[in-house]
Design a protein around this nucleic acid. Structure first.
Lengths: 180, 180
DNA sequence: TGTCGCTATGCAAGTAGTTGCATAATCCTC
DNA sequence: GAGGATTATGCAACTACTTGCATAGCGACA
């Protein structure tokens, strides 16, 4: 259900094609929801079939035509109605922690290597989030005020990554300490 | 794939029935992976079918018989092999943040109410995590040393909840400030 | 004495998400 | 001028997960 409303929200801000949406998704929604391009296209078809989206084909030179989707009245209503309903609690899914839970099957060198790999990824994540944050603060005041709510998830993303990194660094230290 | 290895890991620590597993899951794995009892039973059947689990029926008085599952040699091998493989990156799924992303469809009173509801849930979560943490430190030294790695995810869970709560409290303040 | 919650297991049908592939033109690099 | 990335869309088959229901005895509460 959430993907459908993520799509509606993005199209509410600005109409676009599946491909556009996929890229905008990566730059905004991706730090609190993940989806592949197949999911996106399928969702667009479904929403269009249900009359929540309009679709106009836009011929392009050289490359395949774009299908530009935008909200219908029904789409806007569905979005507003959903926004007012209490959201389901999040589902936690952290494969790495399950692995850690079974960590006694690994040598401490293997553990270190895995941890450092994840640490690397999370640091990269943090860097892209912070870059995005900077971009936000470089926008004109008017936009900052209009989008401030939609910006809040990014702040949580940044703090969550920092927390993860701190935890992993401490765990590495503990591994060191227990080895010598 | 992760649920399957969560189940194997729990059964590796101690054999048990689907019902046992479900409860142990809630007390340990649930803060980094979620699963319903149906998923659990289905996974047990599958793992048993693939020869990774042994199953012995244990008749009980009054209540239905238990099926006690335990790892076979193949099960232990599969677990060890998986533990050494790099884990997939986590999939983020936070419905509430999508809702916030569409937050301009809500009145600020509605927003406040939703936020406070979530804040309440996260505070309750933090309290149960901390109680579990206390329980851990009351265990005998020997167990603390043996289980210290499996205990690390809980520490991350605690820090993550604290981060969430801090973020939500700040957001509430911002909502207040922008209202007056 | 009725119903609520707990222990204990499971089926069936549905929705959501993943993986792998396919097409096709254009732009850029070597 | 060959190969690869980018733009743009999509099918098919699969796996994972959810929802709603069913069964069935026991203990506690009111």
């Amino acid at each position: 259900m959430s993907l459908r409303f993520a799509v509606l929200t993005l199209l509410d801000i600005e109409p676009g094609s599946g491909y556009d949406l996929k890229r905008r998704f990566e730059r905004s929604v991706s730090y609190f929801w993940s989806a592949s391009h197949q999911q996106m296209y399928r969702e667009l078809h479904k929403l269009h079939g249900e009359g929540l989206l309009d679709c106009t084909e836009q011929p392009q030179e050289g490359r395949p035509d774009k299908k530009i989707y935008s909200l219908t009245g029904a789409g806007r209503m569905a979005l507003a109605e959903w926004a007012a309903r209490p959201a389901a609690a999040q589902k936690i899914r952290e494969p790495f922690l399950i692995q850690l839970f079974a960590g006694h099957h690994l040598s401490s060198a293997q553990l270190r290597a895995e941890l450092e790999r994840h640490l690397h990824e999370h640091r990269a994540m943090l860097a892209t989030y912070e870059a995005q944050n900077q971009r936000f603060y470089r926008r004109p005041q008017e936009q900052q005020q209009r989008l401030w709510l939609a910006h809040q998830p990014l702040l949580l993303g940044i703090e969550t990554e920092k927390t993860w990194i701190r935890w992993a660094e401490e765990l590495l230290e503990k591994l060191d300490a227990s080895n010598h």
